[in-house]
């Protein structure tokens, strides 16, 4: 199976890519890791006239620490994130998450920017960005703007990206002492996408949970933060009983989409299980 014809444009800098994007307009698609786009091209579900390849832009690969934030370039591969000492030391759950995506070869090509720009409702990163209180940097010819993860994921395959914009960086606040986070994924055995993925970040102060952030992927058309679970745990003692009680509220106010592999009831149940596991692990990391 081969894609329909298109013209290929290899960008060598962000400015280069933005220039191409400006001149080619909505006839063009951005090629990042390609692990969602190229299969879609092959099946001819997508037939862009132009592809702008970001793989030859070194600046988008970098992973650095700046002012208490970990700054991950949009074209950092999952393998790069998984094996980055910077990521592992400051937001270890992000490194673990990266190591759970797809398979080894997919991780060698797939990128964080590609995943979040595509906004597949089963993808792992979106939940983690929400729980981590990450910021997405969007760059256009007129400059850059920062969008909170909370505002970035709009709908299924839809984000806050405007025309002429690229995702260039993702900023994760480094986890402070006393703060822990975890991503717990229940995978579809065939696609290895998340049936349910839960990301949780908790600060434990004097044995009490604070700044609780819990987000899910896989349950509905987009990743979302679960205020029900968050508020149930906020200010509560960090113990198994409170965590279990909070986890049981998972996805209560959300319309959950089931399928032939995992129906709605099962997904709701697994959401509570993954929430508990993620919260327990986050609290354990916070109090380590």
């Amino acid at each position: 199976m081969l894609p329909a014809s298109f013209d290929y444009h290899r960008a060598t800098s962000v400015a280069d890519a933005l220039g191409m994007l400006g001149s080619l307009g909505d006839e063009a698609k951005i090629l990042a890791g390609g692990h969602s786009l190229i299969p879609a091209l092959k099946l001819r579900l997508s037939k862009p006239a132009h592809l702008i390849d970001l793989n030859a832009i070194p600046e988008l690969r970098s992973i650095t620490r700046q002012n208490g934030h970990i700054v991950v370039g949009a074209m950092a591969t999952h393998t790069a994130v998984q094996t980055s000492d910077i990521v592992r030391s400051a937001v270890p759950f992000i490194a673990d998450l990266a190591g759970s995506i797809g398979d080894a070869s997919v991780r060698n090509r797939g990128t964080i920017g590609g995943v979040i720009a595509h906004a597949d409702p089963r993808a792992d990163y979106p939940a983690a960005l929400l729980a981590a209180d990450a910021t997405v940097v969007l760059t256009s010819k007129s400059g850059s703007r920062n969008v909170k993860a909370d505002d970035f994921f709009v709908d299924m395959f839809t984000t806050a990206l405007a025309e002429g914009e690229l995702v260039t960086e993702i900023h994760f606040p480094a986890l402070a002492k006393g703060t822990g986070a975890s991503y717990q994924k229940f995978s579809h055995p065939a696609s290895r996408y998340a049936i349910v993925g839960c990301a949780a970040r908790v600060t434990v102060e004097g044995g009490v949970c604070k700044n609780v952030r819990v987000a899910f992927t896989g349950l509905t058309e987009k990743a979302f933060r679960d205020n029900g679970v968050e508020s149930a745990l906020e200010g509560k003692p960090a113990n198994e009983a409170t965590i279990q009680a909070a986890a049981l509220l998972a996805a209560k106010s959300i319309e959950v989409t089931g399928d032939s592999f995992a129906d709605e009831a099962y997904r709701r149940h697994i959401a509570t299980v993954q929430a508990r596991k993620a919260l327990l692990a986050a609290v354990a990391a916070a109090t380590k």
């Binding site: 055995p189 065939a190 696609s191 996408y193 032939s260 592999f261």
Partner: peptide, 23 residues
Amino acid sequence: LYEGAFYDESGQLLQGTYMDYTM
């Protein structure tokens, strides 16, 4: 444990790729 090819009532195969059919 894993494999199965099931059709819906209209005769569409529900597990028609490796993303759905578990090897």
